[in-house]
Design a protein around this nucleic acid. Structure first.
Lengths: 211, 211
DNA sequence: TAGATTCGAGACACCTTGCCTCGTAAAGGA
DNA sequence: TCCTTTACGAGGCAAGGTGTCTCGAATCTA
């Protein structure tokens, strides 16, 4: 069962495959077909059969390189994700976070790669293998960490990366998954402002608060 | 472990249905079968055919009352959700939030109803109809709002309910969806503490922060 | 009791899946 | 250059799910 891993770099391919692919054209055609079909007909209506037809490729060729729809989708999405989730640095930390959140919200609601990621995350709830795939790829986490590293100097109370990343992206991701709708820019900005306000001030929780 | 909670109220059914259900037994059998099968074989392996067999019911009977697997799942899960997500009030606001977050994490990773909700949220990424179903049910949002209302008096800077709810539950939901693993209690507690710290202090964002 | 409607059961056509086999075309090695 | 190797497109195949339809029987309502 030799096939490309998708997430793996090009150089990794040289190793195990008994026969190298004769043409990258077939692989590319499949990846492009998946990208297009995801937007046009949606994940549910997308079948291995349909993908092969749309790509002008034999069914067996698809099965040769990918075991499931999810694997194709991950390979088709992961490349674009890094690029689309990169937000330019801003001087003000809250603006920096807000910029990233805007890119994230656009990614999740507009971009084909983002639609692919959502479909993948959906499939991960049904199939443990896909869940591992998504967790290991960690598309959102890696992108978030880039921004968080920029902001950290201005936010002494920022928690460990895993929690900080979840606090930053979680609300946006969850809201989009639950509603499917884009989020208002003001809400994103306020979320960023509140997070920064919490991460700046390192006063530990005191026990009171009861009236 | 049977329940009758449907999102659809009893009275709703009177409208369109040409005849009321003769026995609730058939409906109950289906709901219980779905609950069991979700844990035993998972959502993906669950078929309408299998549900009917497991429930000892004709296939048409299933299709008569629910159009899709998702509808059955929502009805089977939503009843338990309210109960399982209810956390007892605590004197300290941070503890109150942490208690809710613990219940939420347990719900999402252990409870059959929580597994159902995750499967539903997954399906929502593939099927717009399910997305609307999940959004309208708003299981997590309603539960969160109960806690947030208790905490609000101690948190003058808490944002509007929608954002506050997302900030509270989003990180937990997203993390569970992406990894499938339970979250450490310390992380939940720290998340609660950080949120409270931000919501307590209503200092508006100042423009500085640049070194 | 009489009519209406749901019930379990199963047949049906249609579709997708994953594997298999063709004959063909294009790589790489000698 | 020739020849071996391997992927390639195409399509057949069994298995299984879907959603609709039809039956006779059970059961509720009037």
């Amino acid at each position: 069962m030799y096939r490309y891993a998708g997430v793996v770099s090009d150089s990794d391919r040289t190793g195990a495959a008994p026969g190298r692919p004769r043409s990258e054209a077939a692989r590319q055609a499949v990846l492009e077909a998946v990208d297009d079909m995801l937007v046009e007909i949606g994940y549910a209506a997308m079948t291995m059969k349909g993908i092969a037809q749309r790509a002008g490729v034999g069914r067996q060729t698809v099965y040769r390189w990918w075991a499931t729809k999810a694997e194709i989708l991950l390979e088709a999405s992961s490349g674009d994700a890094d690029h689309e989730l990169a937000s330019p640095p801003r001087a003000d930390p809250a603006d920096d976070l807000a910029g990233f959140l805007t890119a994230l919200a656009t990614f999740l609601t507009v971009s084909p790669a983002g639609l692919g990621y959502r479909a993948l995350l959906g499939e991960a709830q049904h199939d443990p293998a896909v869940r591992d795939l998504v967790r290991d790829a960690d598309l959102l986490g890696r992108a978030a960490r880039t921004v968080l590293d920029r902001v950290r100097p201005h936010a002494p109370a920022m928690p460990e990366a895993r929690l900080a990343s979840a606090q930053l992206t979680g609300p946006v991701v969850a809201l989009v998954l639950e509603t499917g709708q884009p989020l208002p820019a003001t809400m994103l900005a306020e979320h960023a402002r509140i997070l920064i306000s919490a991460w700046r001030n390192d006063r530990p929780a005191d026990g009171n608060g009861v009236s």
